[in-house]
Simulated scan of single mutants.
Amino acid sequence: MQVADLGDVKLHYRLDGDPDGAPIVLANSLGTDLRVWDQIIPLLPAGLRILRYDKRGHGLSSCPPAPYAMGALVKDAERLLDHLGMKDVLFVGLSIGGLIGQGLAAKRLDLVRALVLSNTAAKIGTRDMWQARIDSIRANGIEAIADQVMERWFAKPFRLTAAMHAWRTMMVRQPLEGYLGCCAAIAGTDMITPTSGLRLPALGIAGSEDGSTPPDLVRETISLIPGAELKLIRNAGHIPCVEAPEAYAEILSEFIEQTGHLSG
C-alpha cells in the first residue's frame, strides 16, 4: 500500500505496469475509489507506467473537512505527480477526474501531454442542483441517493447483475465529508474558458446511457479543444470502464497509439 504525505492531505495511490514505461494517470469519479480501473489495467498495452489514486476524501486517502475547492483537487494531482517524478503524462479523467484533468492541463502543461475526458464536462450540473444534493445527504446520508445514482451510473442490464451491488456499496461507504467536499468542488467549477484554451491531443469518451454527463454534454466540452474527437460506448452509462472494460480499453489503447505516447 502506497501513500503520499502531501502535508494537508495523504493520498493513497497505486502504480502498475513498467516502472520505466510511458506514464499514464487514471483519475476516477465521485463516490468511487481506484478499484474502478481494475478491469482495464490488464487490457492496456505493455510499456505503460500506470498511476491511479484515491482523491481526497475517498477510498484510503485522508479526508479533510468539507467543502473542497476544485483548485485543491487539481493541486493534489499536481503534487502527487511531482512527488513521484512523473511528467508528460497521458491523463485519463472520469467524471470529476475529468474536471481535475482539465484544471491540471490548464495549469501545468509540462505535466500533461495528452488528455482523455471520459464521461465528464467543463461544467457539470448547476450550483443549485449540487447544493440540493449536499443538503439531502447532510440530512439523510449517502444511502438516500444511492438508487438514483445507480440509475445514472449504469445501464439497466448491468443494474440487474450482482456486480452492481458492489459498486453501490462502494459509493455509500465513502466518507461523508469526502463525498460532500467533492460535490462542493464540482458545484463551483466552470472550466469552459480554460479548457477552450487547451492545445494538446485530447479525446472524449461518452456512454450512450449516461444519466450524469450525457453524450451531448461530453461532445460540447471536447469540441472546445481543436482536433479532439468523441468516442461513444453504446449500452453503457457513466462508468463505462466498469460496464464495458474491453471497449473502453480498446478506445484508450487506440488513443495511446495515435498520440505516440509509448514511443515518447
Rank of each mutant, 00 (worst) to 15 (best):
G93S: 11
G31H: 08
P214F: 05
C241P: 05
S212Y: 01
W167L: 07
R234F: 12
R138T: 06
A77K: 04
A206K: 04
L115D: 00
L99V: 05
V172S: 06
L43D: 02
V92C: 12
R199G: 04
I256Q: 01
F255R: 02
I134H: 03
I40M: 06
R173D: 15
A144Q: 09
V242K: 00
M86Y: 09
P157L: 14
V25Q: 00
A106E: 10
E151N: 12
N28K: 06
A187E: 05
D38V: 00
R199H: 11
G31K: 02
D82A: 15
V36M: 14
A184S: 14
E143C: 02
D110R: 03
M164F: 07
I96G: 03
P240H: 02
V9T: 11
L34Q: 05
Y179S: 02
Q131K: 10
C241K: 00
L176H: 08
L44N: 01
M170G: 08
I50R: 05
D33G: 11
P245V: 05
V112E: 00
Q131D: 10
Y179M: 02
L44Q: 07
W167E: 03
A249E: 01
P19M: 00
P175V: 13
Q39D: 15
Q174S: 13
F154V: 03
L104D: 01
G125M: 08
K107H: 08
E250V: 01
I222V: 15
I50E: 00
E151M: 13
D82Q: 13
D110L: 02
A22E: 03
